[in-house]
């Protein structure tokens, strides 16, 4: 299942990374070279393997469902570029056109 140039375009779109046209072919080659080594795994019989291994032991701990302190050393207002009413203001983007200058 070789990676094609079209696959790279699709995956780059999914990953939100702009890739220069001139890099597409070499990236396909690089990914194929790496994935070629992964085919080794097909030799392993995993039909009877039940669960995926994740944590070392015991699984994930749960904590009481309360709002813990956010661990910030200083209030967001001291490091955010701009805030209003306790909210961080983000810069306007071209896609915001047509919407009011600032949310009411």
């Amino acid at each position: 299942m070789a990676v094609t140039r079209e696959d790279v375009v699709k995956v780059a779109k999914l990953a939100n990374i702009a890739i220069d046209e001139t890099r597409l072919d070499s990236l396909a080659l690089e990914l194929n070279a790496i994935l070629g080594h992964m085919d080794e795994l097909r030799k392993v019989d995993t039909a009877r393997v039940q669960t995926a291994e994740g944590l070392g032991s015991g699984g994930q701990r749960l904590r009481a469902d309360y709002g813990p302190p956010d661990g910030l050393a200083s209030a967001p207002a001291t490091f955010a570029p701009e805030t209003r009413d306790g909210f961080v203001l983000v810069p306007r983007l071209a896609t915001h056109e047509g919407s009011p200058e600032r949310a009411p």
């Binding site: 992964m38 995993t46 995926a52």
Partner: peptide, 12 residues
């Protein structure tokens, strides 16, 4: 083919 297989081999 890749991720699920890798997780199974990881278990082994």
């Amino acid at each position: 083919a890749y991720y699920k297989k890798a997780q199974a081999v990881r278990t082994l």
